[in-house]
């Protein structure tokens, strides 16, 4: 067998393990959630870990990790925020946000680029990702709950803005500290 295929097999295994562990992190991020007294969308760390997953694993594997997360939830395992699960949640008020996780991970992975990570690029990637996340989540929330636009924004956006800013900041610092070493290690083996 050629050296090449052995190396790529071993790389695939590594990414498989990483993707599985990031899925576990996203699930845990959903458990440490605080429901807010303003609407049906609880504040969670799941979206934070989705950002990190995209940044670290890139487009393909980041997407795979989030897809696995959604798949487990659809199967009926209690992985969504606060231990919920099932297709009903996916079609419920917060379903748009869950599907938006795919967009968030994908754009974080795609826009942050490969080589040496630059702060500006990562920031842009995370901002775009979050715009897409809320772009998918808010209209969905409005459609399912029949709220007015003002009501939708009050329930699904405004209370989360401080949290999102904090999460993006920490994700940025995290990427700057870990990402160069992480990528180096990936290439080395």
């Amino acid at each position: 067998m050629a050296e090449e295929t052995v190396a790529s097999k071993s790389m695939n295994l590594r990414m498989t393990v990483y993707a599985a562990l990031f899925t576990a992190l996203i699930i845990i991020g959903g458990y440490i959630s605080v429901p807010l007294p303003v609407g049906p969308v609880p504040i969670v760390l799941a979206d934070f870990f989705v950002m990190v997953t995209g940044l670290f694993l890139g487009f393909k594997w980041g997407l795979a990790s989030v897809a696995l997360y959604l798949f487990l939830g659809i199967l009926g395992l209690p992985v969504f925020a606060g231990g919920r699960s099932g297709l009903a949640v996916l079609f419920g008020p917060t379903g748009g946000f869950l599907l938006g996780y795919l967009l968030l991970a994908a754009s974080a992975g795609l826009l942050a680029g490969k080589g040496r990570p630059s702060i500006a690029r990562i920031l842009m990637a995370l901002l775009t990702g979050n715009l897409l996340l809320y772009g998918a989540g808010l209209p969905w929330l409005k459609a399912v709950t029949n709220l007015s636009w003002a009501g939708t924004l009050a329930a699904g956006l405004i209370p989360f803005i401080p949290g999102v800013i904090i999460k993006i900041t920490v994700a940025l610092i995290l990427a700057r500290t870990f990402l160069p070493r992480f990528r180096e290690r990936l290439v080395s083996s």
Partner: peptide
């Protein structure tokens, strides 16, 4: 809150990545 989240997430991610490396080696 940025610092608080940071102190929580940094060790978690660091340890999880290390564990992932070891598991991948062990499986291989």
């Amino acid at each position: 809150p940025v610092k608080r989240l940071k102190y929580l997430v940094f060790p978690l991610l660091d340890q999880t990545l290390r564990r992932a490396d070891e598991i991948a080696y062990a499986m291989e």
